[in-house]
């Protein structure tokens, strides 16, 4: 079932041309002086951003390379993601098994999904104190609701015939959940992962920008710092790092998951 080469090549070419065009446009705006005499400061050229990119890692801020900040952020992100995804599975699973729990949980998901994590900060600080755990909490908050919503919708959309085929071969309760509901809802779970990951990543950075713990500084704090100090080239370079991490996760983790499940099984929606 190999696709024709042109079908995989064409999107790649489109993306490359698009990015190249954007870069050319950027460089043109940066070099043209369109933005006035201080444009180098607010709209640095690609070379300046490139140099700042390297400087971010070599020099960094406050004696720490950007690696340290990335490491801190990734650690908190990973903890939050694992916890959030895990809890989403547990709670969504429980709502298949118990109808009362399902009613409550659906209600909770609908409400909590609407609350912006950053707005919860004051409450979270009162409950948890000022610890990196607060950031983890916000990542969990960012990921658990969209993930749960997708899993719950996925469970609802499981064709009745799979459930009956499963019950017919002796599955019930927890084993029906793991044997039928979860795999049958994979396409929903994968899109939940995509949405959850993007929200968690953005949520982490905005939380770190607002709530910076100097003993555990992350990428958001770094960006904020660069902004405060008018180091715009460094700030843009850090945004590029954020994009790179996002792309690596998308193509290095999420796409392979998708290719090895729903695409392989012919279950794409």
């Amino acid at each position: 079932m190999k696709k024709k080469k042109s079908e995989t090549l064409y999107p790649l070419i489109v993306k490359i041309v698009f990015v190249a065009a954007l870069l050319v446009l950027w460089e043109y705006v940066a070099k043209s002086g369109l933005l006035g005499e201080h444009s180098a400061l607010i709209f640095p050229s690609l070379e300046t951003i490139g140099a700042a990119f390297i400087r971010n890692f070599k020099v960094g801020f406050a004696g720490s390379s950007l690696w340290i900040y990335i490491g801190n952020s990734m650690k908190l992100l990973l903890e939050g993601l694992l916890l959030g995804i895990g809890l989403a599975f547990v709670f969504s699973g429980l709502s298949i098994i118990s109808r009362t729990f399902s009613i409550i949980y659906n209600f909770v998901v609908s409400i909590c999904d609407l609350l912006p994590g950053v707005a919860l900060l004051p409450v979270v600080i009162i409950i948890f104190g000022v610890k990196p755990g607060v950031i983890v909490f916000l990542v969990v908050h960012a990921v658990i609701w969209p993930m749960s919503r997708n899993i719950l919708d996925g469970f609802l959309a499981v064709p009745q015939i799979y459930v009956e085929a499963g019950r017919n071969i002796g599955l019930k309760g927890f084993r029906l959940l793991t044997g039928v509901y979860l795999p049958a809802a994979t396409s929903y779970i994968v899109s939940g992962l995509k949405v959850g990951w993007a929200r968690a990543w953005r949520g982490l950075i905005s939380a770190e920008m607002i709530f910076g713990i100097a003993s555990c500084p992350g990428i958001g704090l770094y960006i904020n710092q660069m902004r405060t100090n008018m180091n715009n080239a460094e700030m843009y370079a850090t945004l590029i790092v954020i994009v790179i991490i996002g792309v690596v996760v998308q193509y290095g983790i999420l796409s392979p998951i998708e290719n090895n499940t729903v695409k392989k099984w012919g279950m794409t929606r």
């Binding site: 064709p159 017919n168 002796g170």
Partner: peptide
Amino acid sequence: QPGTDRIMVFQDFNQLFPW
């Protein structure tokens, strides 16, 4: 209750687990 002593073959082609 359902059990493996009585196995059902459905009309629906999608009775196999696609995964």
